[in-house]
Structures are given as C-alpha cells and as structure tokens.
Design a binder for these strands. Sequence first.
DNA 1: CGTACACTAATTGCATGCAACGTGCACACA
DNA 2: TGTGTGCACGTTGCATGCAATTAGTGTACG
Lengths: 252, 252
Amino acid sequence: MEANDEVSVEPPSLSSYRFARGGRGNAVADTTRALREAILDGVLAPNEWLREESVREVLGVSRTPVREALNRLEEEGLIHRTPGQGARVTTLTIEDMLVVYNVRGSLESLTARMAAENAPRPEKIALETLHRAMAVAADRGDPVEFSRINIGFHAALTAMADNAYLDRLLSTVETAIRRFGTRSFSAERMAHIVLEHEAIVSAVIDADGARAAQAALDHAEFARTSTLDRFLARTATLNQLLALPRTREKHP
Amino acid sequence: MEANDEVSVEPPSLSSYRFARGGRGNAVADTTRALREAILDGVLAPNEWLREESVREVLGVSRTPVREALNRLEEEGLIHRTPGQGARVTTLTIEDMLVVYNVRGSLESLTARMAAENAPRPEKIALETLHRAMAVAADRGDPVEFSRINIGFHAALTAMADNAYLDRLLSTVETAIRRFGTRSFSAERMAHIVLEHEAIVSAVIDADGARAAQAALDHAEFARTSTLDRFLARTATLNQLLALPRTREKHP
DNA sequence: CGTACACTAATTGCATGCAACGTGCACACA
DNA sequence: TGTGTGCACGTTGCATGCAATTAGTGTACG
C-alpha cells in the first residue's frame, strides 16, 4: 500500500495487497489473507495462474509460506493446483453456488439450534441487543452500518454455539459465499432480514432449538434464492441447465 | 524411538504407518494419510503431542511435508496447533459428533439430488448394480463385503453428483466421521441400510431430485441416531454432560 | 504438410539450515 | 519460603538450494 507513490490508475494488482512483515510468526496467515482477499475482490481472475515465485516476489515472503497459503486456499476451494504445475483460481459453476448455499443453510441451522439450547442467557441478551441495533440501521436505511452489525450478529451466534468444528467449517463456507458477489442491501431486503433475524432471536431466547433451526434455515434459503435468482437473471441461458430445486429440507 | 526400527511387536506405534518413498511427488499426501490413519485407528491418542521432528524421523521424510500434512489435518479437525508450540490430537465432544453427522446428512442429501438430476443413465444403472450386490451381501450376512461395496456405493453417488466442491467437503467430513468408531454392521442394520439405499437408487433412476434428497437425508439420519445412541449407551456418564447446561471448556 | 522426438526453460517438490520464540529450570534475592 | 531473573534447550517459522518433472519449442522425418 505504501510503496505506490503513483496512485493507481493502473489495473489493480496483487501488489496492493502487500502487508508489513513484523518479525516472525505471521507470514503464512498474512499471505493467505492477502491472496484470499485478492481473489474475492476479483483482482485475481478465475483461471489466472498463480506462480509461487511471482507471488513470493510481490508479497515479499519466501516460497515456503506461499506454498502453505496456496494449500489452504485450495482447501477452501478458491484455487486448484495441478500436480506438476502451479495453481489457478477456480471458476465457479452454478452448481457450486447451489451447494455452497445449501451447506451454509444447514450449518447455520445447526448453529442456531446449538446457540438456543446451550448458550448462557447474558449472551442471548447481547444477541438481541445487536438485533435491535440492526433494526435501527435498517429503519435509517443505512446499508453500511447494517452490514457491519450483520457480520457481528452472525459471529455472535456462531460463538454462542461454541463448537470449534462447526466454526471452522462455517468460516470456510463463508469465504466461498463471498465469491458470488457482494450482496447489496436494498431497503426491502434489510426489512426482510430483520424479520428473519427476529424469528431467530426469539427462538434462541426461548431456548427453542427446533424453532431456531427452522428460522435460520428459512433465513439462509431466502439469501440463497435471492442471490441465485439475481445470478440467473444475469446469465439467462443457464436457466435451462438447472431445473431449480426449491425443496424444503427438514432438520430434526 | 530409534530402538524399534525394524518390527513393532511393541504397542502399535506410528512407525507401522511408514510408507515407501518412490521418487518425488507424494510426500505430503503419504504423510497426511499415514498420520490420519494413525489418528483414526487410535494409535495416536487424543491430546498426544505431535512433534514435527519426531514425525519426520519416524516417517522418513523431511520436515517440510510433515508441516504441510499437519496443516491439512488441522483443517480436517483432527489435530490442533498451538502457535509457538506443536500440534496435539483433538478430543471429541458429543456436540462435535452431532454437528459432523448433521453436516454429512446435508451434504449427502445434496449429492443424491444432483446425482438424480444430472448423472447420465449408464452411471445410474451401475449404481443399481452396486446396490444389488450390497443386498446380496446383506442376505449372505457378510459385513465385510457389505462394507466394501457400501464405500463404493457412496463413492459412485459422489462421482455422479460431479461437483468438486461438494466432493472435497464430503470427504473431509467423512474422515471426521471415522473418528467415532467403526460402525459394525449387524444383520438388522444391513437390512435397514439396503432398504434406505433402495429408496435412494429408485429416486435417482427416476431422476426425482427431491425424492432422492429426502431419501439420502433419511439414510444419514438413521446412521446418526443409531451411532449416537450406541455412543450414549456405552458412555453413560456423557448423558449427564449432554443434559448439563454447558461446559465452557474449549478443546485443549 | 503433419507428426514424432529431443531439448530447453520454467516451475514445482522436497531437503536442509538458521534464527526467533517459548518454556522450564536453576539460582539469587527478598 | 516465595518470587524474580537469566540462561539453556527444545521447537517451530521461515529462507534457500537442488533435483525432478512438466510444458513449450524447434527440428527432423515420414
């Protein structure tokens, strides 16, 4: 960031994701984050090659952390490595999209259930507070603040479920979701989300696991279908390829 | 460590998981597999430390692939790394178990749906053939053969869904499942499974995605509840733990 | 004109070396 | 006796070097 004296009229490149290296202990994490953000921002386009050596040069670390970072990104599904050769950014099919959203729905459903059944009451109250703040932001028509609190809301829910495995899985799925473009929060969308969160919060406070699970599932399905519809509207030819499944899975 | 290099009549140790190194290109995969199997077989006990140097010595590779293998196992949730210090095998809570089984159910449901909707007919016929062979093995009361074909059955279904992301996610979840002990196939259990597979196969052949999804979900749920019941029955003390409000202890 | 083959260059896969960080212990000191 | 400090050791984190492998290219040959 600081090396670019000439402001970027140039195409955005990976170099703007450089980070400050302070001593030992963060090279892999920093490299992973930089590459991940670059991919999610579209700076590294699908099918683009990622050479270890060039990444090393741009980010200013050695090849070892770059390698490990590439491994992690492969686990997350953001890149694909061909054995003797390098890594390329994966392309996204509409089926991937379907899968990712469905998985997220299932995981968030579980999260809500566990939060409802296990979380201590003070954390539940804190969740409700967050929810109220979101409702206010929605009323004010402030999508930026809304989005900020939204992230906190889901993070709180995840923390309340208090399960490391679930946490890890959900976070990798979340990054995959971010590849499908930024969700813009229209006024109606925010209102709808507030209602859905309302249902979740109420069930969580009542310690009603089943209801919380269903509410979270509904919430995720709304996000899925709306994003998917938007995507399909944009690329209409794919409509035929996919007979949109819209079934309701029940969770015990 | 260096004393029993040759044969291990000693308590089973990691050294029996050594592999033949043939040239270049498999060190990470082989190391990962060896460690994973050792953990799943219980040879490496929960909470046991895994030092890079000692693993290197036992498995006969350098520290670099060992490091990468440890990273992958961490992603899979089998080990946990503490920053400045090494890695330890994770312990399993019953909530982990619940989560993992539920996730698998969701993923297999999606798999079945996509297989039903997208797979070409010859593969569907091949699936039915596998299913028939499983039914025969169940009738004969041959759990070993049954288990073998069972793995093939699910692999075939996964291949038919033809989605890389789903595939990767499902396989990591499968390894997590394997930590909960081997599922022994009783006669009744095999009969039940055959019936459930019957429903899946029929829906897949009819290209009925929704029915396939529901059938797969039922199948997974049966596996979950039966395994969970068995687990709870065996370790009755955990019954209390589950009923108790909560233990805020994280994985050590 | 198309194809097989050898050769070169580019790139990864793994091994190893070194420095930093954390931990435990001994010892001095209050 | 309890506590703080320094030192030594073990372990990881990262850098770098070398060999194996693959892609690409030019050339000879059918």
